[in-house]
């Protein structure tokens, strides 16, 4: 089964460049602004959209993404409304892949089978669930594959050669390499170390490898993108969003543009990078 993710990476390969993957939180700072933001992302150069599912206890996230999730929850965001958001986005854009990223509990409570049907119908292409390692594949990974959704796994600096095959076994769409041991938005990713790690993963899989955690600037993004099939930026975009809010944490006339402008600058960085050697 070919998803929008598979199609997008095939196109990029033909074009000889890496993907620019953006992460924003669904419903941050409110559902209407959030929809405008995700509509603006592809227009500003994003190739793939990762959409955060708000959760009260995001154990792998730093302060910026934690706060983004809490802002969304405060205005009443739920998993159902996140699916609605994607459905609305799909009215104008049937090509940009959307990957939901977050934690398992809201999906478990929604009901796995019902969630997979609704997610597919809403136009979601893949899932990244931080707290579902391969040891828990029965929970969501295998049912998601069956339902035609990519289950994108995180590989990390602690995932050694012995463990990589298990991590890659049921992964599809792309592999997300976490460039640092740590939480989102912490240390800066080191391009040299990333290059070695991506090469190591490529020895085990033909899937595209995207790199995230610790990429903030166009220069950073360019350096990382030249060693991988894609660069993911999240915290920097969320910080730009946050800085555009008013004192009460509400969207202003600047909010959508703040995210779009940084996206455009980062996209330029990624597009300046040569596609990593296969």
């Amino acid at each position: 089964m070919t998803t929008r993710i598979d199609t997008r990476f095939a196109e990029l390969k033909k074009a000889g460049r890496s993907a620019f993957v953006t992460f924003v939180m669904a419903g941050d700072p409110d559902p209407a602004t959030s929809l405008e933001i995700i509509k603006a992302l592809p227009k500003s150069g994003a190739d793939v959209i990762e959409l955060g599912m708000p959760f009260t206890d995001p154990m792998a996230d730093g302060p910026s993404i934690q706060a983004a999730g809490l802002r969304a929850l405060k205005v009443g965001m739920t998993l159902r409304k996140t699916l609605d958001l994607v459905r609305d986005f799909r009215r104008d854009d049937n090509a940009t892949p959307i990957v939901l990223m977050g934690y398992y509990n809201p999906i478990y409570i929604y009901g796995v089978d019902k969630f997979l049907v609704d997610a597919k119908a809403a136009g979601i292409d893949g899932l990244i669930i931080v707290d579902l390692p391969p040891e828990e594949d029965d929970e969501l990974c295998l049912p998601a594959m069956k339902a035609g959704l990519n289950f994108i796994r995180l590989a990390t600096p602690t995932t050694d050669d012995k463990r990589l095959p298990a991590v890659l076994a049921n992964t599809s769409g792309f592999v997300y390499y976490v460039a640092i041991t740590g939480i989102t938005g912490a240390a800066a990713a080191d391009a040299t170390a990333v290059s070695g790690a991506v090469a190591r993963i490529k020895r085990h899989t033909k899937l595209p490898v995207c790199v995230g955690f610790g990429i903030r600037t166009p220069e950073n993004a360019q350096a990382i993108a030249s060693h991988a099939n894609g660069a993911v930026v999240g915290t920097a975009l969320i910080d730009a969003l946050k800085n555009s809010l008013d004192a009460g944490g509400r969207a202003t006339a600047k909010t959508v543009n703040a995210v779009a402008e940084l996206t455009a600058a980062l996209a330029q960085g990624v597009k300046g990078a040569k596609q990593a050697a296969e």
Binding site: D131, P133, E136, L154, V167
Partner: peptide, 12 residues
């Protein structure tokens, strides 16, 4: 029960 943790922690 189970092991619902980030990949970074799984090897440890």
């Amino acid at each position: 029960g189970g092991r619902f943790v980030a990949e970074t922690l799984m090897p440890l």
